[in-house]
């Protein structure tokens, strides 16, 4: 199984290591041709406004959007979820989310870095808690046509929308491969 990890900026390496540990073939995606033949993609955390601009300068916006519309499975974490949301609050005026996951997310909705936190999460389908690492995390303020897989304080933090899994937190930093395993099990 070949998994592309969007590597424009951010925590792509941790995702690549997690996927590699689970036996997937990992391709770092920085240009359109890197998407050729991938069975799934991961959109990592990082700075969403930076990634948004680099999607354009790298000419990845259109091919990535088309592939995801055609059902390419995706695991989008933190900034990655912001890129795929239908609405971004407290974003930049020129930020253009792809509108593929029906949620409204507020950037840094949990506060600045001193408010960043870890919390145990009960995830539907997983035995035992999963450590959610929230770093200047986006907060889901409206969840539309998505399945909520985990909440924190009554707010959705892990959602499924068709073949796309979106997380407000960083499973790649948790030292726990279960969510990556779950994602790969849904590919193909």
């Amino acid at each position: 199984m070949k998994v592309g990890v969007l590597a424009l900026q951010g925590a792509y390496r941790e995702h690549a290591e997690a996927l590699d540990a689970l036996g997937a073939e990992v391709v770092l995606v920085r240009q359109p041709q890197h998407l050729a033949g991938v069975d799934a993609v991961v959109l990592p955390g990082g700075e969403s406004t930076t990634q948004d601009k680099l999607l354009d300068t790298s000419e990845l916006r259109a091919p990535l959007t088309d592939a995801l519309r055609d059902g390419l499975p995706a695991f989008a974490t933190c900034a990655g979820l912001i890129l795929l949301a239908t609405e971004v609050l407290d974003g930049r005026a020129d930020q253009r989310p792809l509108g593929l996951v029906d949620v409204s997310v507020r950037r840094n909705g949990y506060g600045r870095q001193v408010m960043s936190f870890e919390a145990p999460l009960a995830v539907r389908g997983l035995d035992g808690p999963f450590t959610g690492v929230f770093i200047r995390a986006p907060r889901i303020e409206r969840a539309g046509a998505v399945e909520v897989l985990a909440e924190h304080d009554g707010v959705p933090v892990l959602v499924q929308s068709g073949a796309i899994t979106g997380a407000c937190f960083h499973p790649e930093l948790a030292g726990d491969l279960r969510l990556h395993e779950r994602f790969l099990s849904q590919v193909r």
């Binding site: 951010g10 925590a11 955390g45 960043s116 936190f117 870890e118 690492v133 930093l173």
Partner: peptide
């Protein structure tokens, strides 16, 4: 959480 923000700034 503290090192994590540095990871997010990578690249």
């Amino acid at each position: 959480v503290k090192r994590g923000l540095a990871e997010m700034l990578r690249g």
